[in-house]
Amino acid sequence: MSRMSDFLSDVKQRREELKAKRPSSFGEVKTSVQDNVIWKSIFRPGSIYRKGYRDTSRDRALAAMNNVLYHLHPVKVKRHGLKLTYTYCLGGLSFFLFILLTITGIFLMFFYRPTAGAGSELAYLDMRNLSASVTFGNLVRNMHRWGAHLMVFTVFLHMARVFYHGAYKPPREFNWVVGVILLTLTLLLSFTGYLLPWDQLAIWAVTVGTEMMGFTPVFGKQVQFVLLGGVEIGPNTLLRWYVLHVLFVPFVTVIFLAVHFWRIRKDGGISGPL
């Protein structure tokens, strides 16, 4: 009996001890999470995730500086550029759509094989399967499709707004040229993607488009041959355009986007005020 009660009181005592050791408040947990080598290796000195954030000028500046977004945004920006009616955020939305398309596109790649031809119409079957039986497949495909159309549209509008603000004038002439290249790349991205479902709409739209290319002076037929991977649209075209669509054109676009954003900052930030 006494052994038993000894044992119980022992357990009780032990429990009290453990309780005393356990961090008692959120604040203590926070300190123990933040005060270690790993946390400190992730967040730079001065990061608001180390020291906490108070709404002071200093911390506002640090929030921008200790952030990967510092590659895109300076610590301070012109006040007039924030007015929605200056940029309508069109460049930013174009970029955001590009990201959204990358994410949804990666999802689609898990379920799509760029193969066509009698007996192995995988591309088309995968598209059907995607809509019919992949969880969220149809929704993501729709987002990718509508997002692509929308991006072409926002890039057009962005270009128009830049023009009407005279924002292409020195020192921004070169960035305008980069923009024109981006516009071309956006159209190419959209057009190469158009073929991938491999339905009637896809191949005939592409046929119409590449026929026009065939009328390039002097080496029209060669241009068309390279684009189609043959004399007429077929399984080779699909594979070729798939690689262009998921790898080559996005890669080139990302490079030009980097130049575009870098130049915005080097040219003194957003143009204006008018």
Partner: peptide, 12 residues
């Protein structure tokens, strides 16, 4: 995307 489906016609 929730309300409008992307078109998918007959096989090429």
């Amino acid at each position: 995307s929730f309300f409008l489906d992307a078109p998918l016609g007959a096989l090429a």
